[in-house]
Every structure is written in C-alpha cells, then in structure tokens.
C-alpha cells in the first residue's frame, strides 16, 4: 500500500516519478490509512469491550465521520471496520438483501479498505453487518453480527430528558416502558409495536433491538453468537454477548407473538417458515404472488437446492 500511497501523493503534488526528492522517498513507513486510523479502531474496540462486559448498556463512543452519512449505517460500519482484518469474510445485508444499494456500497467500502473478503453466504461469513434483519440461517459462535442502529435509546419515546433517561437506566426503572405497552394494548387491542421491540438483556438493561422485526427477537435469546449494535449518529455502542438472556417485555397474560401472515408463502421459493415481505405486483417477475423472503441469500439457496433435487 505504501507505494500506492506515495505514487498518489506524487501525483497530487506533481512530482516526477522516480525523481530525486519525490514524496515517495519521504514516506518512510508503510501507511495504510484505511478509513478508521488505528487510534479510532482502538477506541471503538474499547467501547465494544465495555459493551460486552455490561450487556445491554449503551456505551458512548467517539463516532468518527464516515464516508457515508450518519443514519446510513455509520455506526455499524465503524464497528465492522474496527473488528475486521484480512482474514475476515464480510457479508452485508440491508433488510435481508445482499444486493440493496446501501448493502453493496457498504460491503465494497469495507472490502476495498480493509483487505477482508466479501461473501453473500451466511456460513462463509465471519462478520455480518446488517440493517433491520438477522439472517434466517442459524449463526455459529465464531460469527459476529453487527447491527446498524438508528435510535439506540429504547426509552426515547417516553422520556426526552437525557439526565432522567440515564437515571431510569441506572435504577432499572422501566415502569414507563411498561406503561407505553399498556397504552398500546388499550388503544389498539393488541401490542402493535413490531420492529425494534424493547427487550430486557441479561435481566438488567432494556435495549432497543434496532428495527429488526419481532420475528428475529427470539433468535437473540441465548444466541450462540455475539451481537454488536452501533449507532453512529447517537454515538452509542451496545452488545448482546453469546448465551445471554434476551426477553421481550411482555405481559404475563399477553403472549409475545411474531409476525405471521396466515397462508402466505414466498412466491419465489414457496417458503412459509421465513420472514416474508410484501412486494408490489409484477416486481421481480413475481406476478403470481405478493410475498417474498426478506432474506434473499436464504431464498436463493433454497431455490438452487430445489433445482438440484
């Protein structure tokens, strides 16, 4: 990389390649700036370590400027950049889709600046950065899930004052979160809160589960893998370590239910046991159905397996 950098710098200052006192001569150490410098990576890793030690606690971190706008996954991106190396295999999904514009751009950014390898297959990946989904396939203990978080504060909807919020978390005072669920049920007859459902982590902290659907919540409970949550705009990192209790806040007499549309199945792979999303008629040549799998890699593999058999 140092040669490339030196050449680039030469080009910038208009020096002759190979000339006597070119900038290339001045660059004595190989420098790979990447996007995050080593100090920034270390700071993010420290925040991650704290987050892992105190499951569910929102750890403040520096949150550097990224080449993507805040709100476009800058938090997840910083975590990924801080933990991947050349040995890693990275998968990035947006709403379950490897081919979403944002997913493709983030994946390219990570691959091109870290030397990690890209994949769309879950079982090949060591790090999976995601927006709004957990892959349908079970993850293993040596895989890390990195979630992009828009609003890390689960109590934001019931309290705006930062000092009060800190106090509520410190005292595990989540009465008003329960009231918001009570009000939801009273007003609507059912608990309508679907994505980002509040969960109690390790019996202590309530977290916002990012906008992952309820469908994915049970898969965080006692999961074998590490989940890291990064909120770039809000400068917070939190974590669910492997084998940690994750309990959705649920009234004893109102069971927690995941999204399910009776009779619906994927119009591509016919799956009904996956998280499905509704599509407009005639999209993707799927004129005969209104639903497809949210996890595109999973759906694709199912179809290829069908063709083989």
């Amino acid at each position: 990389m140092s040669a490339t950098l030196a050449e680039t710098l030469d080009a910038v200052v208009g020096a002759e390649p190979g000339g006597a006192a070119t900038l290339a001569d001045l660059v004595t150490e190989p420098v790979d700036p990447g996007i995050l410098d080593e100090h920034a990576k270390r700071e993010v890793r420290r925040a991650i370590l704290t987050a892992v030690c105190v499951p569910g606690y929102q750890v403040p971190f520096g949150s550097r400027e990224m080449p993507v706008a805040r709100g476009w996954g800058s938090g997840g991106l910083q975590i990924t950049l801080a933990i991947v190396g050349v040995d890693d295999v990275v998968k990035v999904i947006d709403q379950g889709d490897d081919e979403g514009v944002n997913a493709v751009n983030l994946r390219r950014l990570v691959i091109n600046t870290t030397g990690a390898v890209e994949t769309t297959e879950v079982d090949e990946a060591t790090v999976i950065q995601t927006r709004h989904r957990i892959p349908e396939d079970p993850l293993s203990p040596d895989q890390t899930l990195v979630l992009q978080v828009p609003v890390p504060e689960p109590l934001r909807g019931v309290e705006r004052n930062m000092a009060t919020l800190a106090q509520m978390h410190a005292e595990a005072d989540y009465a008003r979160m329960w009231v918001s669920l009570y009000e939801d049920k009273v007003r609507n007859g059912v608990i309508t809160k679907s994505t980002g459902y509040p969960c109690l982590v390790g019996g202590r902290y309530v977290i916002a589960t990012t906008p992952i659907p309820r469908w994915d919540i049970p898969r965080l409970h006692q999961a074998p893998f590490l989940s890291l949550f990064g909120a770039g705009r809000e400068r917070k990192i939190y974590a669910i370590p492997p084998d940690t209790d994750v309990e959705p806040l649920t009234f004893d007499d109102v069971p927690f239910e995941v999204e399910r549309t009776p009779g619906a199945s994927c119009s591509l792979c016919r799956a009904s046991e996956a998280y499905l999303v509704e599509i407009p008629p005639s999209s993707f040549g799927a004129a005969d159905g209104r639903w497809i799998c949210s996890d595109t890699a999973w759906c694709r593999r199912r179809r290829s397996e069908d063709n083989l058999s």
Binding site: D173, A175, R176, W178, V179, Y182, E183, K185, V186, F251, D252, D253, V254
Partner: peptide
C-alpha cells in the same frame, strides 16, 4: 398518558406484569 396508564405506571413499578390484573 391515559388515566388508566397513570395508575398502571405505579403498578408496573411495583412489579405488576399481568395486563388483565
């Protein structure tokens, strides 16, 4: 918050977790 919700706040703070109750 609703009148019921204001009362529910104290009940949930005291550990009530049954919606019907």
């Amino acid at each position: 918050v609703t009148a019921g919700g204001n009362v529910a706040d104290r009940l949930t703070a005291a550990g009530w977790r049954n919606f019907g109750q």
